[in-house]
Write a protein that binds this DNA or RNA. Structure first.
Lengths: 325, 325
DNA sequence: ATGAAAGCGCTAACAT
DNA sequence: ATGTTAGCGCTTTCAT
């Protein structure tokens, strides 16, 4: 691989001039063309490791998410990527697998690689960011807030839970809730919405039907099985995220209770669904938009924005089932 | 961020010794402990940019895929990641969006960052790897082969197409094929399987039902609509990949032709399906395994393996629908 | 086994 | 506007 010295020699200028050409500082027109020609001939690309070492920062941002196989997060990643690459930044996708240790490893890598910043969908409420924040690198929280005073983009989780539940309460009487892990805010907030919807309707929430599991298909499956085995099973269910929804609907199909036979509302879009849209109520979450906002906030911080930390709350869009039992 | 010099000073040794401790070369036991203690106290992590610059290679591999929102590729990514991180390598996921230019950008970044190697699911048959191969960096092809003499992991695409079609021909008479773009080998190979299955059954393949589109949900949707609008529509369809399958089934559902009313076989697993497994024939593709194999081959090359290039062909597993019309 | 010192390729003072 | 030069933090010869 050619270096800046090779290019300089071929173009008959100093290495510094070559560097200037590639960094947009003032160089006379003729030298610019000479350098560009030489660079092209040698197939020169600036060595990023050297640049990063010198500048103490690289044009790379890390996006750390808990589940790369969840379409919700990949959609978010697309939003981040579009904004970042527009601004000349690359995005490194890191999969923490919902484990705090793996997450910490990736945060350390981000530091050690001098990445410019991090967008983090935290694995847990207790994620510790002291180390990375001490380096002065900006971190933006997405989807879930952290215990730290940093920028964040979340959505109206309580509302989402409430809207989903309200729709079901119009046509059903025993509405269950299957959420993610209890140590994750999005799970508990959405559950609160379920509670509030009952209260607002003047009903007592059936607390025996409030369940926490994992934000995954198998979580939805096992809890749905449990609920159906109850002496007094629910006649409808709110799924706390897209994958739980998939698992719950799978089990219902196996029991010949395909929605709307048993009512289903899902918080999050059903990825690649083959169901009729009229059968299930879906609270669409602005995943892509969330990624876009987070990337914008992070880039602003990288450019030196010093405002106090802000949290943006995005709204959801309900797509109600028309069919009922 | 602490440097090797800070640690050296605190531990009362030279910077070289600190480096040795972190690289596993011979250092006396007492100094090792002193260095480790100092490193821990200062929260030291070796600066990767510096290490990379010096070593001319980083412990990072790039995985370039055409669609990060396709669960097939994220499953593959998990396989790659598991093997790589086991060996101390990080994986950078790059989304080429099926565009050759974006792909080239990422390949250039991989070179400029001195990454150790690349695993590539090429955006097109015509992807040019001359530049990166000239740097001596190993590249392994996955899912799709390239025109270059490099290692590869693919699956038995022709067989997959053939198996899917054979199953449908047992119960249906006019079997269509919806494939991906014609310039991608996996699409044409699977279509060939469709042809062969007809021939093997002593039938003439209905060439008016052979269609190429994109490997995406909307591709499956639009072609399925076209097929249904035909004067003599098909009574069954082979979907060339998972997303095409989703799109086709969506359209069928909307037309009240839910499988097995119209027969469906999908090459690839249906992601997050809520359908009964008995309704659709699925040719399961070994996505994760493919990622695992590719990562192993790449790591071997990175470690200096000089064998001639090999291509591994993985077999598929058919999960036949039991229900028919 | 350990230390001294050079250098990976680049950028940013500083000098001209 | 352009060249000279120091140095980012690390690894790795070469001495000892």
């Amino acid at each position: 691989m050619a270096t800046i010295y090779d290019v300089a020699k071929l173009a008959g200028v100093s290495p510094a001039t070559v560097s200037r050409v590639f960094n947009g500082t003032s160089v006379s027109a003729d030298k610019v063309t000479a350098v560009r020609a030489a660079a092209k001939e040698l197939n020169f690309t600036p060595n990023r490791a050297a640049r990063t070492l010198r500048r103490q920062s690289s044009e790379v941002i890390a996006l750390v998410i808990p589940d790369i196989e969840n379409p919700y997060f990949t959609e978010m990643a697309r939003g981040v990527e579009d904004v970042a690459s527009e601004a000349g930044y690359s995005v490194v996708l890191c999969n923490s697998d919902a484990q705090v240790e793996k997450e910490l490893t990736y945060l350390r890598i981000a530091m050690a690689e001098n990445m410019s910043g991090v967008i983090l969908a935290a694995a847990s409420d207790s994620t510790n960011l002291d180390e990375i924040l001490a380096t002065g690198r900006p971190v933006v929280a997405v989807d879930r807030s952290t215990g730290h005073d940093i920028d964040g983009v979340v959505m109206a989780n309580r509302d989402a839970g409430r809207q989903a539940t309200e729709h079901l309460l119009k046509s059903y009487r025993r509405v269950a809730y299957i959420g993610g892990p209890e140590h994750i805010e999005t799970a508990t907030d959405r559950a609160e919405g379920w509670l509030l919807a009952h209260r607002a309707a003047g009903l007592e929430a059936p607390l025996d039907l409030l369940r926490y599991s994992s934000f995954r298909v198998d979580g939805g499956r096992s809890v749905m099985e449990e609920l159906l085995a109850l002496p007094e099973p629910p006649d409808a269910v709110v799924a706390g995220n897209n994958l739980i929804g998939v698992g719950a609907i799978q089990v219902l199909t196996e029991h010949s209770l395909t929605p709307p036979e048993l009512g289903v509302a899902v918080i999050g879009s059903l990825p690649f669904t083959t169901l009729s849209p009229s059968a299930v109520t879906v609270v669409r979450l602005p995943a892509r938009h969330m990624g876009v906002m987070a990337a914008r906030m992070l880039l602003a911080r990288i450019r030196g924005d010093k405002q106090p930390a802000r949290t943006v709350v995005l709204r959801n869009e309900v797509q109600a089932a028309s069919a009922v039992r």
